[in-house]
Design a protein around this nucleic acid. Structure first.
Lengths: 101, 101
DNA sequence: TCATCACTTAGATGCTTATCGAAGTATCGA
DNA sequence: TCGATACTTCGATAAGCATCTAAGTGATGA
């Protein structure tokens, strides 16, 4: 995991490593669609995502761990389920970086 | 080439294909650095870029044509040189797309 | 006209990664 | 306790891509 969502550092620039990880995570079209789906709900379960995308469990697991590695989502177990939460502050920080270009 | 800079459609959303092309173009760290370098000058020549990055001519050529294919830069010949110009309006349109997520 | 310069194209190579099936782990309900 | 469910890990495969060298194209200047 590169960095966590944290209300106290909402205005600090992202580390370069994290900016690159996010760019890479978002470059895959399918992964971007997954992220968008997560972002529109407040919180999604893997099972929900499996229903919405024609994708196998291992592939979804892979994509989610990429997104988590980039700091864009957090994964939390709830019994046998996993909840996926969008880290909007990290996303906003990323956009702010791109905006400075 | 996916789309051209055009002052009349500055508020239209990007085609999906172009959004994906931009995301992919920006995902490579070296290419992002090249783009940033182009964006900070108003206009750069390939030769200038060759001096700033430890990169061979074919590789630079490849990266520039990727950026051009995404609509992020325009390449114009000037004698034996090529000028590279950043298409800021496309970049802004891309950021607006990401902002809607 | 000819050599040089700036860049492009072609082709090859090696690395990364998206994807899947199979097997593993952990949780829940009966 | 046992089977089913939800997800992860492993291992393999195939596709994509960044990079290079070598060769090609086109413009410039002597």
């Amino acid at each position: 995991m590169v960095s966590q969502s944290n209300p106290t550092d909402g205005d600090k620039p992202l580390p370069k490593r994290q900016r690159e990880a996010i760019a890479k995570a978002v470059a895959d079209p399918r992964r971007f669609e997954i992220l968008r789906h997560i972002a529109t709900r407040h919180c999604a379960a893997c099972s929900d995502l499996r229903e919405c995308f024609p994708i196998t469990a291992p592939t979804l697991s892979h994509h989610l761990s990429e997104l988590e590695g980039a700091g864009l989502v957090t994964l939390t177990r709830r019994g046998k389920f996993v909840d996926v939460t969008f880290c909007r502050d990290i996303w906003i920080a990323y956009l702010r970086e791109l905006d400075q270009l």
